[in-house]
């Protein structure tokens, strides 16, 4: 099972590298932030897989913090940066 966990972790990391392209290109600020949120979720999955591949149960706590972080970042973005009066292109 450990081999499968590590293979899937590598696969998810390749997904993350593909999402980096959207951060580099993203026409509106929201697209960049959505890619960052995808990083958070996929990071949770990678951490859980690493935890069960022999990394220890403490990694599950780190995954919990990852899931919590997305709300803080997204709320700060919506409240502080993406106001109505500014146009869509940064």
């Amino acid at each position: 099972m450990t081999d499968l966990y590590l293979t899937l972790a590598v696969f998810l990391l390749v997904n993350l590298l593909a999402a980096l392209w959207r951060i580099a290109r993203g026409p509106t600020p929201a697209d960049r932030l959505l890619a960052a949120l995808l990083f958070g979720t996929t990071g949770v999955a990678v951490l859980l897989l690493l935890a069960y591949a022999g990394g220890g149960a403490a990694l599950v706590d780190a995954a919990l913090v990852f899931a919590l972080l997305a709300v803080i970042t997204g709320a700060a973005f919506v409240r502080r940066i993406w106001r109505e009066e500014s146009n869509g292109h940064s």
Binding site: A30, L37, A67, L68, G74, A75
Partner: peptide
């Protein structure tokens, strides 16, 4: 919960 809240806000 985080995903639903953020999707609604954005």
């Amino acid at each position: 919960a985080a995903s639903a809240t953020l999707s609604y806000l954005i």
